[in-house]
Simulated assay, not measured.
Amino acid sequence: MLLEGRNAIIYGAAGGIGSAVARGFAREGATVHLVGRTLKKLDALADEIRVAGGKAETAEFDALDEAAIDEHAASVASSAGSVDISMNVITHNDVQGTPLVEMSLADFESPVRTAVQTNFLTARAAARHMIGQGSGVILMFGGDGDPLPGYHLGGLQVAFSAMEALRRGLACELGPHGIRVVTLRTGGIPETVPASAGLDEAIRDMVEATMLKRTASLEDVARVAAFAASDHARSMTATALNISCGTMVD
């Protein structure tokens, strides 16, 4: 197993991406510490993981709450013995579909503020324990910071760019302590798109924008995340893993 004996904290674990990654990490031997704002959903996921033979713990709090984040990370380090992996996949409260020149400041800055704050706080909390261990992996999840013609993504693209700047800074400072920082990028995952009018057309556009004429699935994300967090990727840091099926060209 790729992650045998590792402790992974996943923020936003009850969502589509978070739950897929949690299942993938547990399948590879990690104990997953599931964090979110709805305990009922977290407990249901934890039960599912345990039934499948995995190990899971849950904690209910907001991943923007500095004190709760620090306290939980310290609790995991104390009770489990280590914090080996930290991954933040909470939603960024983004508003899409409105041209920038028609957007309010509040709607524009919401994803930027959320993304930077939550990723900084959770990465910092994990890193403080990883430094003492001399090892650890911090995974971020985002897209490309470049704008996409024809789409009105508001502040989300700015948020992605800010996250990448944060990732570069963390990787530079934490590398000497044996800590890796990596971003996973997709061009969109149809399984996470809420059902709505025009959904089929939106998914067709998403697929058409790829080179492989298919999009990444939640299972693809889970497998790549497990690889990135494992020793198989021990030489990878300060970079992004492009799993966009060719939507994004590096």
Score class of each variant (00 low, 15 high):
1 M>L: 06
1 M>T: 06
1 M>V: 13
3 L>F: 13
5 G>Y: 14
5 G>P: 12
8 A>R: 03
10 I>C: 05
11 Y>S: 02
13 A>Q: 01
14 A>V: 06
14 A>W: 03
15 G>I: 02
18 G>T: 02
18 G>M: 05
18 G>F: 03
19 S>Q: 12
20 A>R: 01
21 V>R: 03
22 A>D: 04
22 A>T: 04
24 G>K: 12
25 F>N: 08
26 A>H: 10
27 R>I: 06
28 E>L: 12
32 V>C: 08
33 H>C: 07
33 H>N: 15
38 T>D: 15
38 T>H: 11
39 L>R: 12
41 K>V: 09
48 E>W: 00
50 R>K: 10
50 R>P: 07
50 R>W: 01
51 V>E: 09
52 A>Q: 04
54 G>N: 14
55 K>C: 14
55 K>I: 12
56 A>H: 01
57 E>T: 13
58 T>D: 09
58 T>R: 00
59 A>C: 12
60 E>L: 07
61 F>V: 09
62 D>R: 00
63 A>G: 08
65 D>L: 02
67 A>S: 14
67 A>Y: 00
68 A>M: 01
70 D>Q: 07
70 D>I: 11
72 H>T: 04
75 S>L: 15
75 S>M: 06
78 S>A: 08
81 G>V: 13
83 V>R: 01
84 D>P: 08
88 N>C: 10
90 I>W: 05
91 T>A: 14
96 Q>P: 05
97 G>L: 04
98 T>V: 15
101 V>E: 11
104 S>H: 13
105 L>T: 12
106 A>D: 12
106 A>S: 08
108 F>T: 04
110 S>K: 15
111 P>K: 04
112 V>D: 07
115 A>H: 04
118 T>C: 13
118 T>L: 00
124 R>H: 11
126 A>T: 02
127 A>W: 11
129 H>E: 05
132 G>Q: 01
134 G>K: 04
134 G>H: 07
135 S>E: 14
136 G>D: 05
138 I>H: 10
139 L>V: 09
141 F>D: 08
142 G>E: 05
147 P>D: 13
149 P>M: 00
149 P>R: 03
149 P>A: 01
150 G>K: 09
154 G>R: 07
157 Q>W: 06
159 A>F: 15
159 A>T: 04
160 F>L: 07
161 S>A: 15
163 M>F: 10
164 E>Q: 15
165 A>N: 13
167 R>S: 12
173 E>G: 03
177 H>A: 10
178 G>P: 13
181 V>P: 05
182 V>S: 02
186 T>P: 04
186 T>I: 14
186 T>Q: 01
187 G>S: 07
190 P>L: 09
192 T>S: 10
193 V>A: 02
193 V>T: 13
194 P>D: 10
195 A>T: 12
197 A>G: 13
197 A>T: 07
198 G>Y: 08
200 D>F: 00
207 V>Q: 00
208 E>V: 14
210 T>A: 00
210 T>K: 00
213 K>W: 03
213 K>H: 08
217 S>I: 14
222 A>S: 07
222 A>R: 01
225 A>L: 13
228 A>G: 02
233 A>E: 08
234 R>P: 06
235 S>V: 15
237 T>A: 09
239 T>D: 03
243 I>C: 07
243 I>R: 01
244 S>K: 01
